[in-house]
Simulated assay, not measured.
Amino acid sequence: MPSIDLRCYLVTGAGSREHVVDVARAAVAGGSRIVQVRSKPISARDLYALTEQVALAVGDRAHVLVDDRVDVALALRHRGIPVHGVHVGQDDLAVRDVRALLGADAVIGLTTGTRELVAAANELADVLDYVGAGPFRPTPTKDSGREPVGLAGYRELVELSKVPVVAIGDVTADDAAELAGTGVAGLAVVRSLMSAADPAAYAQRLIRDFEQGRP
């Protein structure tokens, strides 16, 4: 599997295409090394165009993933656009099929958030790069229907998981040190990076505090 720095994981959110691309570029300049292009609701064509612009803006400095749409990732990779994989949910294409389609070099993440879902993901550890687990706390960005995980919950999920765990769900830089102490591999951030006055400085702060909080 490719080596991935999950510490500061940008998930793109609402805003114009120009804003999303600008935030991605700045966050990567600040040290973010993984960007998931997510913008719901959005058509496949619009997601394709947005992902292409993000990928070209950040170049080889970060892994760029497409949310849910394996077809969009495949099409862009076929054209040689630097898109590195996908993040899929529990109702998307099966992870083993995703791996078969995208190949051994692709990055594949899966949404979890409960002990049962992490245990099921362990059966896919040979084809998964990481799991996203959340929500850390309730968030208006995405209603998963799951109970908040909380700090104690992440410790349990990290201990159980056979692959790296990324915390998501209203995560901010203020949480970085405490969450790092649970053993998670990284923090997926949507709103606090998308709305930051200086996304580069925000990413730098998050990574610094995450490193300070690591066990």
Rank of each mutant, 00 (worst) to 15 (best):
V28W: 10
V149S: 11
L187K: 00
L47N: 07
T141L: 07
Y202V: 05
Q53N: 13
H63C: 13
E178C: 00
S16H: 08
F210H: 08
G213K: 00
T114V: 09
P215G: 10
A200I: 11
R99C: 06
A133F: 09
Q53A: 15
D60C: 00
R115C: 08
G59A: 09
G13E: 00
R61E: 14
R45H: 11
A173G: 11
R33K: 15
A104D: 14
V28P: 08
S32E: 01
K40S: 01
V163F: 02
S32V: 12
R99N: 11
V70C: 11
E18P: 10
A55I: 12
R191W: 02
L10Q: 08
F136Q: 01
L47M: 15
P2W: 01
D5N: 15
K162C: 04
T51R: 12
T111M: 04
M1C: 06
D209H: 14
V64H: 06
D129P: 02
M1L: 06
I34P: 00
D60Q: 14
V35N: 04
A26E: 15
R208N: 09
D5Q: 02
D91W: 12
S195I: 07
R214A: 14
V66T: 10
V58C: 02
S144R: 03
Q204V: 04
A180H: 03
R214G: 12
